[in-house]
Simulated scan of single mutants.
Amino acid sequence: MFRFFHVPRSRRCIAAALFVLAGLGAQPAAGLELPRARSVPGGVALVELGPALAAPQASLDGVPVLVTGRPGGWVAVVGIPLDASPGALTLEVRGEGAPLRRVEVAVAPVRYAEQRLKVAPGKVDLSAEDLARHERERLRSAEVIATWSAREPATLRMLQPVPGRRSGSFGLRRVFNDQPRKPHSGMDIAAPTGTPVVAAAAGRVIDTGDYFFNGNTVWLDHGNGVLSMYCHLSAIDVQPGDELAAGARIGAVGATGRVTGPHLHWSVMLNRTMVDPALFLADGSGAP
């Protein structure tokens, strides 16, 4: 003989949710290919956020952070600022119907090499006209960098945009004409002028232009705050709004802007932070 007891609907819903999470708990985070983790200034931290029916929202210093996964386990892909101090950053996480929680992200120390370069004096000691131009371009770049589209990237493992020798690595402490400047925020790849440059991953063109320091430049939006930038081009073959597949041509290697010779400067950005592109290379050839 069986007895049946009435269970309130709210409790049935909670029980069903717990059952779903229990069944998914052994499953890994979803299939989006992630970059290699390197939790140092200028690196990427992969932070496990645990199971939940819906993706939680995460932010670092008020800036949204990419979260990917599935109900059995979510992961925050955090770009660590190059000027971050070793120690810990605080990631703010809010799940649906859950209170705000704070997760510490450990940041290990790192020392990047120094690079000394000789360029035209006018590219270091700017005239009043060039300084005004640079300030206008800086404000424009800030708007581009703030781009956040709701689509999830197709992958976080990328193609090298041009074949060639790496002539400048991410994080180099650069000295131009014996004057220290900001650390290098991308990867330089030496190649002859005119060599085709391709999209490192599928994305939408969100900006093109001729910049004082970066020369002819293209920005791509890959989704959820993941951006990539391609600089010093001799030619730009795309325009804002174009949707590109991974490997699609965007332009050609050049020597525009502040350069010592033809090469591509390639940057990758997470949560408005430039991070080491080598961590995203699909074949592992750029591992630090």
Rank of each mutant, 00 (worst) to 15 (best):
residue 185 S to Y: 14
residue 154 A to F: 05
residue 132 A to G: 08
residue 48 E to D: 15
residue 38 R to L: 14
residue 174 R to K: 09
residue 66 L to Y: 09
residue 110 V to I: 12
residue 181 R to A: 01
residue 94 R to W: 00
residue 232 H to R: 06
residue 241 G to T: 07
residue 13 C to M: 15
residue 9 R to Y: 12
residue 130 D to C: 00
residue 88 A to C: 01
residue 12 R to F: 15
residue 282 A to Q: 11
residue 45 A to R: 09
residue 189 I to R: 10
residue 97 G to V: 09
residue 258 R to K: 06
residue 75 V to I: 15
residue 198 V to Y: 01
residue 181 R to W: 13
residue 282 A to M: 05
residue 107 V to P: 05
residue 202 A to I: 05
residue 271 N to Q: 10
residue 273 T to R: 13
residue 207 D to H: 12
residue 33 E to I: 04
residue 241 G to S: 07
residue 106 A to L: 14
residue 42 G to I: 08
residue 232 H to L: 03
residue 198 V to C: 06
residue 155 T to C: 02
residue 152 E to L: 14
residue 32 L to Q: 03
residue 98 A to P: 03
residue 270 L to A: 09
residue 144 V to P: 01
residue 43 G to R: 01
residue 92 E to A: 06
residue 277 P to Q: 11
residue 279 L to D: 07
residue 197 V to I: 14
residue 181 R to C: 02
residue 36 R to Q: 08
residue 93 V to K: 04
residue 3 R to T: 14
residue 245 A to D: 11
residue 86 P to M: 02
residue 233 L to A: 01
residue 239 Q to N: 04
residue 248 A to N: 08
residue 227 L to P: 05
residue 269 M to D: 05
residue 231 C to V: 12
residue 94 R to L: 02
residue 210 D to Y: 10
residue 113 A to V: 06
residue 100 L to M: 08
residue 4 F to D: 15
residue 100 L to A: 06
residue 65 V to A: 03
residue 50 G to V: 07
residue 85 S to Y: 03
residue 129 E to T: 12
residue 64 P to W: 02
residue 9 R to K: 14
residue 37 A to E: 15
residue 167 S to R: 06
residue 49 L to V: 10
residue 33 E to L: 11
residue 284 G to H: 04
residue 245 A to K: 12
residue 209 G to I: 00
residue 218 V to R: 10
residue 235 A to E: 14
residue 5 F to M: 15
residue 178 D to H: 14
residue 93 V to W: 04
residue 84 A to L: 00
residue 201 A to V: 14
residue 94 R to P: 00
residue 173 R to P: 09
residue 33 E to M: 11
residue 182 K to Q: 14
residue 245 A to H: 07
residue 174 R to G: 02
residue 162 V to D: 03
residue 242 D to C: 07
residue 1 M to L: 11
residue 40 V to W: 04
residue 12 R to Q: 13
residue 199 A to Y: 08
residue 160 Q to M: 13
residue 169 S to T: 14
residue 188 D to N: 11
residue 285 S to N: 01
residue 180 P to A: 04
residue 198 V to N: 04
residue 45 A to P: 02
residue 184 H to Y: 06
residue 86 P to A: 00
residue 231 C to R: 09
residue 62 G to K: 05
residue 206 I to Q: 02
residue 126 L to F: 12
residue 264 L to T: 08
residue 66 L to K: 07
residue 30 A to P: 06
residue 201 A to F: 13
residue 113 A to W: 05
residue 122 G to Q: 15
residue 116 R to C: 02
residue 114 E to S: 14
residue 192 P to R: 13
residue 111 R to L: 04
residue 170 F to T: 08
residue 170 F to Q: 10
residue 53 L to R: 10
residue 155 T to K: 09
residue 165 R to D: 11
residue 18 L to A: 11
residue 55 A to M: 10
residue 191 A to H: 08
residue 247 G to T: 01
residue 7 V to N: 04
residue 176 F to I: 03
residue 283 D to C: 00
residue 56 P to K: 09
residue 276 D to V: 08
residue 14 I to A: 04
residue 274 M to P: 06
residue 78 V to S: 05
